[in-house]
Design a protein around this nucleic acid. Structure first.
Lengths: 337, 337
DNA sequence: GAGCAAATTGACAGCGCTGTCATTTATGCC
DNA sequence: GGCATAAATGACAGCGCTGTCAATTTGCTC
């Protein structure tokens, strides 16, 4: 039979309420009592019943991770974030659920409300691009559900984790400039995503700093997908003055650019340097391997969850933590011929 | 304030217990009453409190999806399975949690027990290679936790979903044979995984059927990773009589083979045909794109979860459903020169 | 329409915990 | 040492449901 809190109380010779206090790390228990109760719990291998705790205490010990499964970023990125969130939740004995939540389609808010009333999460972790969906943020505040964001566009009072994507983008374009490239193209991601904006801004910043005026023909719209990278590249290769290097806003599109280069008989990196952003496993498996920006996604998921959990447990308000990036230089970029 | 079952009962002019019966689709409620209660629930947008239900009814409405995060298959594969499981759980108003569970390391069973006593899932979905880990299966039976498996090795009384991987492997090797290849190599996956065994068996079956004796030098051990594919390919390319085609047991290894081909100056598919297994998104993004076997992973996750949920809700015992595969012929395979 | 079995409905306790508030014990101060 | 105050502990109700079993209604037979 299951060991209940009452059994532990009897064994430690205290009231159930005191055991509950120890369980929840509450104040007003002498060290001696606390130790005795802890020992009893340990000895009996006591496991609190989550539903009972949740029902009586009016909280669920549940964190929901929300993602968009329609404009969603690469699944490996999400899987890594998820892994990090899970790790943090486990450490704090919270459980985690994942919720795909299609942003397009009018009933987004209704489905969010259903999530809340069906599962009562104590808090929510938002992943891009959901981090910036205003109606959702509004609803979260209204319903008083704490949340943390991974790479949100707006800073301010938001808690969670970011990386300086603009500086990273600038760094990768500077790498191309150092290799002697001047006609450097950029393939933009989905227009309103923060990732797209920052990466474009970093590109512009580096180009401007190098004294190169922007050539609108070299900045092409993409959509973060492989296919959109292929199409963007075709436009670029059809130009009279073709670029010598392309910086795509993510690895999938960069892969598309490399594919299109194959189509046009362009050798990477000899005839064309290509770089991406994200350092997906894929980027190491291409031939040649892709120069890109490594983002510590798993770590970012973990940090976002930790900020959320810290806030939930009243350890201060939580912050927006910034993590470093790494420029991964591989075979897809080389000096201009 | 939250709408409770009691409120619905009052509105429908019945006892709380009757509302509970309607909620749980129990027998012995007249159609008229049932309809009246349903209408009241609808009108009040009633949402049962999961913890209360769980506490009183001694079940959790929770399904746990277990995966191995150390020998784990490609993350996109798992992400798709997860998506399917989630879809099925949602449809039946169950919640889902994901649990990475490292198979190596002695405390596997202890961590599994912790999962059960911490979260009380009503059932478990197993993904490969965890599906075949005997100590776990034993423990599941002992603790009487229902489970469904995705691609289990053992058949018998197991419920879940499979694909005829041997026949699929045979089909892809037959495709190579039809292109005129005779020296066809195979790169094996991690030895004791069902996937590796079936795919090897299919390869052998096709070769034997074509009257080709097995050349041990052409069958190389890999480990399902990109790197192991590269290494396996180097061994193959170093042979005096190099193969004209390679069938790798998954796409990651096939990608490694293509990479190694680049190293050796071999053109795919002109000098070497390569094919894989799984149809990961990656396989379409290579140049040339990879001939491979498409597995309906998402669908498989959904089916496994449905079998489990069906069994949980007493709709019969559940079955082992077999799903079809599709041979995706792409640019990486061509006629022998 | 009485008599009986079967179907339907309801009363009530209790799942395992925590919130509230009362009670007991320790601590500090003159 | 006596008193005021704070810290520690406990009693008890109740969170929102469902299981058990008793009460009531319905349908059937003769």
């Amino acid at each position: 039979m299951r060991v209940r809190l009452e059994d532990v109380a009897r064994a430690a010779n205290v009231s159930p309420k005191t055991v509950s206090r120890v369980l929840n790390d509450e104040a007003n228990v002498t060290d001696a009592t606390r130790e005795r109760v802890r020992a009893a719990m340990e000895a009996m291998d006591y496991r609190p019943h989550p539903s009972a705790r949740s029902l009586a205490g009016n909280r669920s010990f549940l964190v929901a991770m929300l993602y968009d499964n329609n404009d969603n970023p690469a699944s490996t990125y999400l899987a890594e974030i998820q892994d990090g969130v899970l790790e943090a939740c486990d450490a704090h004995r919270y459980s985690m659920m994942v919720r795909p939540l299609r942003m397009r389609g009018g009933d987004f808010i209704r489905r969010f409300d259903a999530l809340i009333s069906d599962h009562h999460p104590d808090g929510v972790v938002l992943t891009p691009p959901i981090t910036d969906y205003a109606p959702l943020l509004k609803r979260l505040r209204e319903s008083n559900v704490p949340y943390a964001s991974v790479s949100p566009q707006r800073r301010g009072k938001v808690i969670g984790v970011t990386m300086d994507e603009q500086r990273a983008a600038r760094a990768i374009v500077e790498h191309l400039l150092e290799l002697g490239h001047r006609r450097i193209a950029h393939v933009i991601g989905i227009a309103d995503h923060g990732a797209s904006r920052w990466r474009l801004a970093g590109y512009r910043e580096a180009m401007a700093a190098a004294g190169l005026p922007e050539d609108p023909a070299l900045v092409v719209q993409g959509a973060f997908t492989f296919g959109s990278g292929v199409e963007a590249a075709r436009k670029l290769f059809a130009l009279a003055k073709r670029p010598t290097a392309v910086f795509a806003a993510n690895d999938d599109m960069a892969t598309g650019v490399m594919w299109a280069a194959g189509e046009y008989g362009l050798k990477v990196p000899h005839d064309l340097s290509v770089c991406g952003f994200d350092d997906t496993p894929l980027s190491r498996q291409l031939w040649p391997a892709l120069t890109t920006i490594q983002q510590p996604s798993r770590e970012m998921g973990k940090i976002a969850a930790e900020q959320l959990l810290g806030a939930l447990r009243g350890h201060g308000a939580g912050q927006l933590v910034q993590v470093p990036f790494v420029l991964q230089i591989r075979g897809s970029t080389a000096a201009v011929p």
